[in-house]
Simulated assay, not measured.
Amino acid sequence: MSVVIVIPARFASTRYPGKPLAMLRGAGGESLSLIERSWRAAKSVGGIDRVIVATDDDRIRDAATGFGAEVAMTSTSCRNGTERCAEAVANLGLSPEIVVNLQGDAPLTPSWFIEELVAGLRADPQAGLATPVLQCSGRMRADLLADRAAGRVGGTTVVFGAQMQGLYFTKEVIPFTGRDYPADAPTPVFHHVGVYAYRPQALAAYPHWPEGRLETLEGLEQLRFLENGHRILCVEVEARGRQFWELNNPEDIPRIEAMLAEMGEA
């Protein structure tokens, strides 16, 4: 039973063109590109048989092969990372048990997030895909609210049902609570970690569905599954004292570099 990680990466991001090649300085002062840091995060995960960078851009291909990554070239018509993962898997003729989509803007993703995600999907044969959710501290919730107040698109939050089925994902901060929380206190808000684990059948079906209305409004690819009646399993993970943030805007670079320094990440 094989597990493959695909890292979709495109140069022509609307909010942040060239984002995969943005440089991030680590605790030791070394600067590495976002795509290399994401690839290193993927390589640290246990139980993974293959890690592939999927891109449609020669600059990203050249950078990735330069640091030793396997690269699959995909078309420019892919509308999001899930479609890019599906095309890469199909083009390479792969038939793994599970495909993990580790988006190329999440270099701080701990290995156990993905390991627990794969275990959660394996344990639920009714789910075609799964994604991790992380309970926000007061500090993380405040950071998300500050991004929204400043007009920046920051992280995504999620609400889920009693069986851990995703009910809705949004770039707003939900649920509304009407109160503040101490920095280290848990809150009712869950951050959606932008990683997905798919069974191949669910992944292969996805590109054939039209973009949904909510997907288009929110700019969130996972909503296409919900809009087509497919259950998304939410797997709760724990930070274990580690900070987590995704690179969505240029303003996130100093924040992530500070986190790398605080964690002692090279």
Results as ranks from 00 to 15, higher is better:
Leu214Arg: 07
Glu172Ile: 08
Val195Asn: 03
Thr157Tyr: 11
Asp180Asn: 13
Ser137Phe: 12
Glu246Lys: 07
Gly46His: 00
Thr76Arg: 13
Glu97Asn: 07
Lys19Leu: 15
Leu102His: 01
Gln243Ala: 15
Arg61Phe: 06
Ile48Val: 15
Met263Ser: 06
Ser137Thr: 15
Ala27Leu: 03
Thr131Leu: 14
Ser137Glu: 01
Glu115Arg: 06
Ala204Arg: 06
Ala130Glu: 13
Pro125Asn: 00
Glu227His: 09
Gly93Asp: 05
Ala185Asn: 06
Ser2Cys: 02
Val6Arg: 13
Val173Lys: 10
Gly154Ser: 06
Thr14Lys: 13
Ser38Phe: 14
Leu247Asp: 00
Ala9Glu: 12
Ala204Gly: 00
Leu102Phe: 03
Phe11Cys: 03
Pro132Tyr: 12
Gly66Cys: 04
Leu226Glu: 02
Ala12Arg: 11
Gly194Gln: 01
Glu30His: 15
Ile114Met: 02
Glu265Ala: 09
Gly120Ser: 05
Arg40Leu: 14
Leu144Asp: 02
Leu34Cys: 11
Met1Lys: 09
Pro8Thr: 05
Gln135Tyr: 10
Thr131Pro: 06
Ala127Ile: 06
Leu203Phe: 13
Phe169His: 12
Ala42Val: 14
Gln201Ser: 15
Cys85Ala: 11
Glu83Val: 07
Pro254Leu: 11
Phe11Asn: 00
Ile60Asp: 05
Ile232Met: 09
Gly29Val: 12
Leu108Asp: 00
Ser77Leu: 14
Ala22Leu: 14
Leu203Arg: 03
Ile114Ser: 02
Lys171Leu: 11
Val159Ser: 07
Gln243Leu: 12
Ala90Lys: 03
Gly120Ile: 02
Arg148Gly: 01
Gly68Ser: 03
Ala197Trp: 06
Pro110Cys: 03
Ala130Lys: 13
Ala202Pro: 07
Val53His: 00
Ala86Leu: 10
Ala123Asn: 07
Gln243Val: 07
Pro125Val: 07
Tyr196Phe: 12
Arg10Gln: 04
Leu145His: 13
His191Thr: 00
Arg199Thr: 06
Ala63Asp: 13
Glu70Pro: 11
Phe11Ser: 01
Gly161Gln: 12
Ser95Val: 14
Val53Gln: 01
Arg84Val: 10
Ala202Lys: 12
Thr74Val: 15
Leu220Tyr: 04
Ile52Cys: 02
Leu247Val: 15
Gly212Arg: 01
Phe11Gln: 03
Arg84Leu: 08
Gly46Thr: 03
Glu227Tyr: 05
Asp184His: 10
Thr187Asp: 02
Thr74Leu: 10
Leu247Met: 11
Ala86Gln: 07
Tyr206Leu: 04
Ala205Tyr: 08
His192Asn: 12
Gly212Lys: 03
Pro250Tyr: 10
Trp245Tyr: 10
Ile232Gly: 01
Arg224Gln: 05
Val153Ala: 09
Thr187Arg: 15
Ser31Tyr: 10
Glu83Arg: 09
Thr187Tyr: 10
Thr74Gly: 11
Met259Lys: 01
Thr14Asp: 13
Gly28Asp: 15
Asp49Asn: 08
Gly128Asn: 08
Ser44Glu: 02
Thr156Pro: 04
Asn91Met: 08
Asp180Ala: 12
Leu121Asn: 06
Met164Glu: 11
Gly178Ile: 06
Trp245Ile: 09
Thr82Trp: 09
Leu220Gly: 02
Gln163Thr: 12
His191Trp: 08
Ile232Asp: 00
Gly154Tyr: 14
Leu167Asp: 04
Met259Leu: 05
Gly28Cys: 12
Glu36Cys: 01
Ala72Glu: 15
